[in-house]
Design a binder for these strands. Structure first.
Lengths: 151, 151
DNA sequence: TATTGTTATACTCTATAACTATA
DNA sequence: TATAGTTATAGAGTATAACAATA
């Protein structure tokens, strides 16, 4: 039965992930932090000081985009750059104390919004979403590798 | 048990949806269609000719954004506008024949890539993802409304 | 020379405000 | 007046290409 994982079903999954992502991006209920900012800050919160290159890699964006993104967070006083003692070409980025506080609050606020929507779903749908979370992570991990070789 | 839908779990879900979307975008083998374009076209494909207002509503965007989005698809020859016979203020938007072909191909191409990753998952994960698809749609529908009232 | 990051520039997607044409 | 849509303009987030500084 695995001969075809039902490309239609997988496509349907993809379309809803896309639409949900777009809807989430629009919603940003925290006026201080956009979706991209939040993702960036979550990365810095979870993985500590890191170089621009590593940051760009983790966020799956290019270096110039990372520069711009970090710039905007520095302007807001949430992130700071510092010199890498081991390599004077490199830059270390990390949250400021103010950034850390604000982030924790913002993360909660945004998830509250999503949780409100979530709670209005049927118990079956809620359960299905929670059950799917590790599977989404696994699918992401598969896509993270170079699974598609367009030679 | 519903007293709190576990904000941590919902946040986790949100983060994986975001990451998966970004990974999908990286892989997008269709250079012709961006994510927003694909969503727009899927809507037109699935729900036929509709007025700009309905299109904007379905995509959860404002009318000027819909105008711009449709403009870009018209320029690529994938969508066409026509007059609404019942109301001369209104405009009907629909896929062109060329749009319909191209969409079907692009959809398949992209979904093949995703399906490859999908098939490498455990049967449990595969099942969880398929089971979650309608729930993702429901969550999207909830977010489409004005669920967040920061009054 | 190769690597790390920034600057310059442009494209996509979104928004609000002001406008046009029709109802 | 009210409604359907467009135009004008702006901001966020992304990219590629060219550059500077350091290794």
């Amino acid at each position: 039965m695995t001969e075809s994982a039902d490309i239609e079903s997988v496509g349907e999954l993809r379309r809803w992930v896309t639409r949900l992502y777009l809807a989430l991006r629009r919603h940003s209920p925290s006026d201080e932090l956009t979706a991209a900012n939040s993702s960036a800050i979550a990365t810095l919160l979870d993985h500590g000081p890191m170089r621009m290159g590593e940051f760009a890699e983790r966020e799956s964006i290019r270096l110039p985009s990372a520069t711009a993104l970090i710039d905007s967070l520095v302007r807001k006083g949430q992130v700071q750059r510092s010199a890498d003692p081991d390599d004077r070409r490199a830059v270390l980025v990390e949250l400021t104390a103010h950034g850390r506080e604000l982030v924790a609050e913002a993360r909660i606020k945004r998830d509250v919004a999503l949780t409100t929507a979530f709670e209005s779903l049927s118990p079956e749908h809620q359960a299905a979403l929670l059950a799917a979370t590790p599977a989404l992570a696994a699918l992401h991990a598969q896509l993270g590798k170079p699974p598609i070789n367009n030679a």
